[in-house]
Design a protein around this nucleic acid. Sequence first.
DNA 1: TATTTGACCAAGA
DNA 2: ATCTTGGCCAAAT
Length: 104
Amino acid sequence: MKNFNDKCYQALRLIPKGKVTSYKEIARYLGSRAYRAVGNAMSKNKNAPEIPCHRVVCSDGKLGGYAFGLKKKIQLLSKEGILVKNGKILNLKNKFHTFKRLKK
DNA sequence: TATTTGACCAAGA
DNA sequence: ATCTTGGCCAAAT
């Protein structure tokens, strides 16, 4: 772990199964407001197979994107009990995961 | 070094 | 509810 991207990937591992979080939440966990850079890091996709990046969605409950296609992302999520309708997470408030902040 | 680019977010003439 | 706009930050070009 040395660059911002790797920190993001590390944060992804902390998301428990059956929950989702937002790009912004990850950035805040890292003590930064670079939520946009987080998404950027995913799209660069240095290690898509290693890290389950399908548990990350937009703050408003929309999906965002996925390296292997949104359909795949939806399937993976539903397999974990998270339902998606019209590209939006259902019952988001219930499934949302917040990290404990490193800095406050 | 400078510019461009996003899997974003919040607010709203 | 949907669309537009401006701002945001790190990485890639």
